[in-house]
Amino acid sequence: MPKGALWNDMLNMKINNINLEKELGKLYAIWLREFKVFLREKSRLVASTFTPLLWLFVIGTGFGSVATNPSTNHVMGHAEWGAAGVGYQQFIFPGIVSMSIIFSSVFFGSYIIWDRKFDFLKSVMVAPVSRSTIFIGKTFGGMTTSLLQAAILLAIGLALGIHYTPVSLMLIVVIILFLSFTLTSLGLAIGSYMESLEGFQLIISFVVFPLYFLSGALFPLNNIPLWLSILTTIDPATYAVDALRSTMLGIAGENPFLADTGILFMFVMGIGTIGMLSFRKMKAV
């Protein structure tokens, strides 16, 4: 691959208006396909909405009874929530929103393995479309579907006593988009190297669950051992959970909101670049 080809692509798009229009048409086509397939695969839609709810209500209620029991307070390390009037279910709510994004984004990206298996990818790659356009179209698709699923959860959050303001909603949407872009790119990057469907199980075990469990979605990160905190630091979802938590619950996070957002943005750029590069190197057949 010639060095700087990516920038050339972008430059060409800018310089030539007609080209830009064509490229946007291609981008739109890829995005639309992703979106339609997502809406039509009912099982995927139902599972990805239902699973977070299961966590929210079963884990939220079950562990909530342990967590709010004064005798186990120190175990959960959340003495300050009581003061802020935050129950366990509310505490994990931002984490569950992140979970839905983690699952849907990584799955969405790695779904490219199926595209390849069923030869659809080949038919796109034989068209005069740049790899970057395909990549961006797919990440936009991932962001759209993540946002849709998150919206359902956010609405349910109202019933749990989460308050939104126009500003907080805007910040929430930004965080959701950053996280889902990062993780869709990650899924695409991994998926672009995988030739068989076996890889899919590995992605679930070695990527999706660790991202989720290490993000602080279910427990606060202030009292964890060093080895665990190293892992949580390199998990992009950690910053999304923290930022969502401070925005939604109005309690101070581990980091200031801006720091979370800034770090998340670095993940967006970093993993986005890795994803784009692996996509460009990917074999078509």
């Binding site: 396909r33 339609k36 397939v37 038919s123 068209a127």
Partner: peptide
């Protein structure tokens, strides 16, 4: 290699956009 979740028309529309 068509996407079987889309209709025939939608597949053609997709590719007509990809081929500009």
């Amino acid at each position: 290699s068509s996407d079987d979740m889309l209709s025939g028309y939608e597949n053609l529309k997709l590719h007509s956009l990809l081929y500009a």
